[in-house]
């Protein structure tokens, strides 16, 4: 693996728990952002979804695996 990968993945973005408790406001702001993004997605989701949901769901048949 390259030096670059090592550098960028060696620090997972984990917020220490004791810090989190002081960050209730930030968390609320994040939740608000997530909600706004979800609202935006809902406005355009019908153009992303398969056109005939019932046919799509019925025709999605797989063989068991493993």
């Amino acid at each position: 693996m390259s030096e670059k990968i090592r550098k960028s993945v060696s620090n997972p973005e984990v917020t220490p728990v004791e810090v989190i408790e002081d960050l209730a406001l930030v968390k609320n702001a994040q939740a608000e952002n997530l909600k706004a993004d979800l609202d935006n997605l809902l406005d355009e989701i019908d153009s992303i979804l398969e056109t005939n949901a019932e046919d799509f769901v019925n025709s999605y048949v797989q063989k068991g695996g493993e």
Partner: peptide
């Protein structure tokens, strides 16, 4: 579209 937090950059995934 659900803004999931990322651990891996696109560049690293491509290299891997």
């Amino acid at each position: 579209r659900m803004n999931l937090r990322r651990l891996i950059t696109q560049g690293d995934a491509d290299i891997a």
